[in-house]
């Protein structure tokens, strides 16, 4: 794994306006509230957090499906926001997405071959049909789908097979970065492990970089090299997999880890149960956003926003305890 930074996210923000009546003050959902991290070439960066923490929005911001309010996304040394529409299209090829729900992410009225050929038609208009079909067959085969299925429609496949098709589509443009948004969350465990293995193998074969977004910490631990934990639109801890799972620093990370039910009845969960629910992202707490649920909250936490600081080579945390 080289240490070349492939993508660098700098203080990216995205606030969605809430539609309110004229008379009320305009409110915003602070989906992503200034996050910075970078992903190195060939590594898998896991982004975890609970629902509403902004992890999916982050993926879409990087991919350009949503435009950020402020901040920079630097891909291969180029700030994506500064690109023209045409240049952007060339960069689009280099990052592709895999979505959570394989039942909803494939056009229901298109045949598998058309779904897979579409990206080629868009980006390589001069490619011959024969060439396209060959590329499709080749890639489907690598993803474990036989070429007999080329003329079938998505509804004729199981969830696992559809996810394989989605992966093949994401790979067809030979991207460098794959953003996988909850890519295995909708699948049964036995299928989930097949897909995870497939993704790992493809990563080796094509030298891919993954941004793996998931709420499932066990899956993230399995696939990632480094992990970022998000809470209410902010990154609160970024560390190597070893550091974060063996020695989590942020109280939120700790409680998140303690909450995972372990598939082993002899391990009794240490109950650091968090009080209460996640506050609304339209009206987050002041200071450290976690202070309302934090078992170790101090006075300073209510007032001052903690900044991300480097604890060592592998670990960064945003918490007043450190």
């Amino acid at each position: 794994m080289g240490n070349n930074v492939l993508i660098d996210i700098k203080d990216v923000k995205k606030h969605f306006p809430l539609s309110k009546s004229w008379f009320e003050e305009k409110q915003y959902v602070k989906a992503v509230d200034g996050i910075s991290f970078s992903i190195n070439q060939g590594e898998t960066f896991g982004l975890v957090g609970e629902s509403g923490c902004g992890k999916s929005t982050t993926g879409r911001l990087i991919n350009g499906l949503i435009k950020s309010d402020t901040g920079e996304v630097i891909f291969n040394g180029k700030d994506l926001a500064s690109l023209s529409e045409k240049q952007w299209k060339a960069y689009r090829k280099k990052m592709q997405m895999i979505f959570q729900d394989p039942y909803a992410s494939l056009s229901p009225r298109m045949k598998v071959k058309d779904i897979l050929m579409e990206p080629l038609t868009i980006h390589f208009p001069r490619m011959s049909k024969q060439e396209k079909i060959e590329t499709v067959k080749n890639l489907l085969d690598k993803c474990g789908i036989s070429e007999f299925h080329l003329n079938k429609y998505p509804h004729e496949f199981s969830g696992g097979q559809r996810q394989r098709i989605s992966i093949a589509r994401a790979l067809i443009l030979q991207p460098e970065l794959i953003i996988a948004d909850e890519a295995v969350s909708a699948l049964d465990v036995s299928i989930q492990s097949q897909i995870l293995n497939l993704m790992k193998n493809l990563q080796k074969e094509f030298n891919l970089t993954y941004l793996f977004i998931s709420h499932d910490l066990s899956v993230v631990e399995h696939i990632s090299d480094r992990v970022g934990v998000m809470y209410l639109g902010n990154l609160i801890e970024v560390a190597s997999k070893q550091s974060i799972f063996k020695d989590p620093k942020h109280p939120y990370t700790k409680s998140l880890l303690a909450s995972i039910p372990q598939p082993d009845p002899s391990v009794k969960r240490e109950r650091i149960s968090l009080k209460g629910e996640i506050p609304s992202p339209s009206n987050p707490p002041t200071g450290c956003k976690f202070h309302t649920r934090c078992p170790l909250a101090m006075d300073v936490c209510k007032e001052k926003v903690p900044i991300m600081q480097k604890l060592n080579e592998n670990q960064q945390v945003a918490c007043h305890l450190y």
């Binding site: 199981s158 465990v189 036995s190 293995n197 631990e221 372990q262 598939p263």
Partner: peptide, 23 residues
């Protein structure tokens, strides 16, 4: 197979066990 398919934290496996095929 089901139990082995679940990724376990700290297991450090490169490849997960997986049951081939589908239901």
């Amino acid at each position: 197979g089901l139990i082995d398919s679940i990724p376990k934290i700290g297991a450090g496996l490169d490849e997960l066990y997986s049951i081939p095929g589908a239901v």
